[in-house]
């Protein structure tokens, strides 16, 4: 396998796994939000914000994938010759975001479900619910940061 294939697999995993995490998270939150909205349709705006929160992991994964592809020249520009070792380096750079994105997306979805139920009972507490849900995202952000720093640290 050539270096570039390994790097592309890394980028693909990053977008795919983080995307799956967000999809599951947003789905769980969406189901809860739909339930609450059926009783209290006027809360739709607040619920939508809460439902959107677990969606960021997918964006971060996508972003990391794009950055990898730009770096290895697959997107815009000529492809760089990569050694097998460099390929694995890119693969490694993708992993924090891929794995943490998958898991934190699902977990943040669960936290969002709780916050949505709370908003259903106490609409004024939605701000607190947003904060609680956002705490989970910290780890996705740290993973994104790790991925980006490793990515830019790789010598070509």
């Amino acid at each position: 396998m050539s270096g570039i294939s390994i790097a592309i697999i890394g980028a693909a995993l990053c977008a795919a796994l983080a995307g799956c995490g967000s999809a599951i998270g947003v789905m769980a939150a969406g189901k809860a939000a739909a339930g609450v909205a059926s009783e209290k349709p006027e809360l739709f705006g607040k619920l939508l914000v809460l439902q959107a929160l677990p969606g960021t992991q997918g964006i971060y994964g996508f972003l990391t994938a794009i950055l990898i592809m730009v770096r290895i020249g697959v997107l815009g520009g000529a492809a760089v010759e990569l050694s097998i070792s460099q390929g694995w380096q890119f693969f490694g750079a993708a992993m924090p975001m891929a794995i943490a994105g998958l898991v934190s997306g699902i977990c943040q979805g669960k936290a969002a479900v709780g916050a949505i139920h709370m908003t259903g009972k106490q609409p004024d507490a939605s701000g607190k619910g947003i904060t609680m849900t956002a705490l989970v995202e910290t780890y996705a952000i740290l993973a994104l940061l790790a991925s980006i720093l490793v990515l830019f640290g790789i010598q070509l």
Binding site: I59, Y60, L63, T138, I141, L142, L144, L145, I148
Partner: peptide, 10 residues
């Protein structure tokens, strides 16, 4: 606070 970097990059 490194999230500031991550979000601005995003």
């Amino acid at each position: 606070y490194s999230r500031i970097l991550a979000l601005s990059l995003a």
